[in-house]
Amino acid sequence: MNILVCIKQVPDTKIIKINPKTNTLDRSSAPAILNPYDAHGVQEAVRLRKIHGGKVTVLCMGPPMAREAIKKCVEIGADEGYLISDRRFAGADTLATSYALYKAIQKLMKQDGIDLVLCGKHAIDGDTGQTGPGIARRIGIPPLTNVIKVEEVDLDSQQMKVRRKIEKGYEIIQSKLPCLLTVEKEINTVAYSPLPNMLRAARYEPIVWTVDDLEDVDIKQLGLKGSPTIVGKMWPPAKSEGAKMIDGDVKKQASELVKHMLEKRELFEVKGGEQA
């Protein structure tokens, strides 16, 4: 079973700083990490490889430093990593991102066939979750999003069953292979990497492709040029002036709080009807 995992290198958004003058991202403030959801994707691929054999390949679009994210995947257990890196990819929105990744996947599919594509539920920086379904649509395979469990893989009949997280529950959906999954964190826990993987990762050099290494590429669909959306403006979200503090003894505090809570009295009415 050959599995391809799309992985993204992202700034660590917990530490990120926004330049208050320009309202842009101060990239130097945040270390670049492997998108946490993608680590779960690689882990799942490694788990499936253990059961079904085959190989795990990771694919990343990004600047040269994204090599580090690929090495991290090798630590988790990926066999091979490809980085597509070219100035012409820069500034891509999700439509242009899925196009570039699709072109690389096409080439990889020709090289050794792919039974399954995995993506993260979303990337913690752009945070759209749109890239996976976009890639699936371009390849012409079903996307199964928000997957929390792989229930079953049957390579003979080329079918798989997964559990998808939906509002207030889950659904079990069956799909022909190949298909594309986007994975949630619940799907597994990312294990500590065994020493041999660490050693291999330290020495590993990903294969780097530029636009010219891909086939039949329509340059107009790449990068900023190929992106229908643009970021118009950015601004920091309104800061609250701080809480109105309620003083007095606990008794008084409690009854004041109840008063404020009842300002939202529509929440507490006895109401019938279906809610989302």
Partner: peptide, 14 residues
């Protein structure tokens, strides 16, 4: 909201 809610961004599709 983007970047973990640290900033708001207006997106246009011209």
């Amino acid at each position: 909201p983007a970047f973990g809610g640290n900033i708001m961004a207006t997106i246009l599709c011209k």
